[in-house]
């Protein structure tokens, strides 16, 4: 799906420094037409900085970024004409009505006059804001605002959409609805680059890039990331108060990695079938009886926690 002449976004060795702080550290990837690419990572990982560089809002310190085939440092205005952007912070005008905001962005993006009303109609229907056209934006609830912002970002039919944590602070119902919209756009051929720190949302993407401390530490379909990145099998160990035994489990034979998940421990082992009974016996031998261990399918969260931990250890940084 990725790469080749059809790629809408090509990022190659991108670096962004703020003084001595490296916010983006040699990131490379590309996004195909109609692909929904997710940026997953903790706050401060450099997701927003990357998106801002691709929108031409920040200049990269090194590396190259082509958006719609145009170098973002050479002709940022040509890039801006072809993209839609939703910033992390809501940035429509609160004292203007829904319609006034859309007219404004239609004008600024130069949507042809004879198409404008039709595009606005489309955006309002898509955002489910019919009947609220004359409401001031300040009076709208969070999910509605978010959909309106998306509507404003696609008024000019951009080929590429950048959405920076579009669903943060929005209720689950609205989040689902928002993702449906993103998939509709993807199906129409719009490339969508969306950042999130909700791990479950990564499952909705065609491909996911895991980003932490400015580095891209893994890239693949959610399925690939869950399976192959781990390179091992996963056991869920359950017992009351088992979280306190994390250090003990770490030292058990055949265990690569352990993390706390709710009230259980998730242990990464070389072979689930043999290690599950061995671990139960090992715990009992250390005075923790009655624990259960069963093989589970790794989730995105398992994969993410493992990969971030591995990347951190590889760099010798404190966790």
């Amino acid at each position: 799906m990725a790469g080749g002449a059809g790629a809408q976004i090509i990022v190659d060795g991108l670096v962004k420094r703020f003084g001595s702080f490296v916010a983006v550290d040699g990131v490379s990837f590309d996004v195909a037409r109609g692909e929904i690419m997710g940026f997953l990572g903790p706050n401060g990982a450099g997701k927003s900085t990357l998106i801002r560089i691709l929108c031409g809002l920040l200049r990269p310190s090194a590396g190259r970024a082509l958006v719609a085939g145009i170098d973002v440092t050479e002709d940022p205005d040509a890039v801006r004409q072809r993209i839609g952007y939703m910033s992390q912070k809501f940035s429509l005008y609160n004292t203007l009505s829904v319609l006034e905001n859309l007219r404004f962005f239609g004008g600024v993006y130069g949507v042809p006059r004879d198409r404008l009303e039709e595009r606005i109609r489309f955006a309002i229907d898509m955002a489910g804001l019919a009947g609220r056209e004359t409401s001031l934006v300040a009076t709208l609830a969070g999910g509605w605002k978010q959909r309106l912002a998306l509507g404003a970002a696609i008024l000019h039919r951009p080929a590429i959409l950048f959405l920076d944590e579009p669903t943060s602070g929005v209720d689950p119902e609205s989040r689902r609805r928002f993702w449906d919209l993103i998939h509709t756009l993807g199906a129409e051929g719009v490339s969508v680059l969306v950042s999130t720190h909700y791990i479950d949302e990564a499952e909705y993407c065609n491909r996911v890039a895991l980003i932490t401390r400015g580095r891209l530490i893994a890239l693949g379909t959610p399925f690939e990331l869950r399976r192959r990145s781990l390179g091992a099998e996963l056991l869920s160990i359950e017992r009351e108060g088992i979280a306190n035994a994390i250090e003990l489990v770490e030292k058990a034979p055949g265990v690569h990695d352990v993390a706390v998940f709710g009230s259980a421990l998730h242990a990464l082992v070389d072979d689930a079938a043999t290690r599950a009974p061995a671990l139960v016996a090992y715990l009992a031998g250390h005075g923790i009886a009655g624990a259960t261990a069963r093989r589970i399918e790794p989730t995105m969260e398992d994969s993410f926690v493992h990969l971030v931990g591995a990347a951190t250890r590889a760099r010798g940084d404190p966790p």
Partner: peptide, 14 residues
């Protein structure tokens, strides 16, 4: 201050 500038500079406005 209101954060609307971030979106405005992402548009093609000169």
């Amino acid at each position: 201050e209101r954060g609307t500038m971030e979106l405005l500079v992402s548009t093609p406005v000169k």
